[in-house]
Simulated scan of single mutants.
Amino acid sequence: MLWPSTVIGAGAGFAIASIPGALLGALLGQAMDRRLQLHSWAHLRERLGGRPALRDDEVLFVLLGRLAKCDGRVADGHIQQARQEMQRLEMNEPARRRAIAAFNRGKAGKDRLGVYLRRVRQQPHAAEGMLRACWRMVWADGRAGRRERELLLDWGQQLGWSTSRVQALALEYEPRRHNLTSATLGYQDALHLLGVEAHAEPGQIKQAYRRLLSRHHPDKLVGSGASPSQVREATERTRELHQAYSIVRKRQGF
């Protein structure tokens, strides 16, 4: 990774005071890189253009905004889906305001996202969550266009996912499949799946959901020698837990 201010500082310092100047300039430049969160020359150009660096919780909504605007018009379904993602992440009001600003920024399509995606790549669980949210946004208007698919495949590659794995994830959010699951999973079924009673406190329900999610998540099988069928089963179980929790939350209003 090339830190722009570090390189500039070292070069300027060397021109002024040879090697000692280069060392001092590099140290000062590195401090500036860290303070301004500059990770690449593209990132520096972005900052010089007046766009602040994205926080980790803003990157997702920039991606969602770009997908929503991909076909030229942001539909009501896209707006609603963005709101659902904020709710899913249990964002407080300041975080929601940042997410809305990031979503609008993403619609402009001017950000170079590679440096941010490579950073998320170091967190496999976060990378999967990001791709899942993106596919939900793609299907928010009931169809997945060619450009949207191309973006998802490109982002998936930068997050360390294979093309086939990204495409397989899309099937989980295809409207026909999603609606079928929603129709067959009722409130009592959702409670049973989460292992909680109808009178359980919201905190108890959240704890049960997170415990089950941690136990069954397919990431747990990475490097364990699990078969493809076991990974698919874990993926399906995780999707059912997401759906069950969503149903219970909606019914109980928390």
Results as ranks from 00 to 15, higher is better:
26 A>N: 04
26 A>C: 05
27 L>C: 05
29 G>Q: 03
29 G>A: 08
29 G>S: 10
30 Q>L: 11
31 A>W: 14
32 M>H: 07
32 M>R: 09
33 D>E: 08
34 R>H: 10
34 R>M: 09
35 R>L: 14
35 R>G: 07
37 Q>P: 09
38 L>H: 01
39 H>V: 12
40 S>E: 07
42 A>T: 09
43 H>C: 07
43 H>A: 08
43 H>W: 10
44 L>C: 10
45 R>T: 03
46 E>D: 10
47 R>I: 09
47 R>N: 12
47 R>T: 12
48 L>T: 00
49 G>I: 07
50 G>F: 10
54 L>E: 00
55 R>I: 07
56 D>T: 07
56 D>N: 12
57 D>G: 08
57 D>A: 13
57 D>I: 09
58 E>T: 04
58 E>P: 05
58 E>I: 01
60 L>V: 02
61 F>A: 01
61 F>L: 06
61 F>K: 01
62 V>L: 04
62 V>G: 00
62 V>S: 01
62 V>P: 00
63 L>S: 00
65 G>R: 00
65 G>P: 00
65 G>M: 02
65 G>S: 04
65 G>N: 01
67 L>I: 07
68 A>E: 02
68 A>G: 05
70 C>F: 13
72 G>F: 10
72 G>T: 03
74 V>T: 06
75 A>I: 04
76 D>L: 13
77 G>W: 13
80 Q>K: 04
80 Q>P: 03
81 Q>A: 11
81 Q>I: 02
82 A>N: 09
82 A>D: 06
84 Q>N: 15
84 Q>E: 15
87 Q>C: 04
88 R>L: 11
89 L>I: 01
89 L>E: 08
90 E>F: 15
90 E>H: 15
90 E>V: 14
91 M>V: 06
92 N>D: 15
93 E>L: 10
94 P>L: 14
95 A>P: 08
96 R>A: 09
97 R>I: 08
97 R>E: 13
98 R>F: 14
98 R>L: 12
98 R>Q: 11
99 A>K: 07
101 A>H: 09
102 A>I: 03
104 N>E: 14
104 N>L: 15
105 R>A: 11
105 R>H: 10
105 R>E: 13
106 G>V: 02
107 K>S: 08
110 K>L: 11
111 D>R: 12
111 D>M: 11
112 R>S: 11
113 L>T: 00
113 L>W: 03
114 G>V: 05
114 G>H: 05
114 G>N: 06
115 V>E: 15
116 Y>F: 09
116 Y>S: 01
118 R>M: 14
118 R>I: 07
119 R>P: 03
121 R>G: 03
121 R>S: 06
121 R>L: 06
122 Q>I: 06
123 Q>E: 14
124 P>V: 02
126 A>W: 09
127 A>R: 02
127 A>Q: 02
127 A>W: 01
128 E>N: 05
128 E>R: 06
130 M>E: 03
132 R>D: 12
133 A>H: 01
134 C>L: 11
134 C>H: 03
134 C>S: 11
134 C>K: 01
135 W>P: 00
135 W>I: 03
137 M>D: 02
137 M>C: 05
138 V>Q: 01
138 V>F: 08
138 V>C: 09
140 A>K: 05
142 G>H: 13
143 R>N: 09
146 R>Y: 14
147 R>T: 12
147 R>Y: 12
149 R>E: 14
152 L>M: 12
152 L>K: 01
152 L>T: 01
153 L>C: 06
153 L>S: 04
154 D>Q: 14
154 D>Y: 13
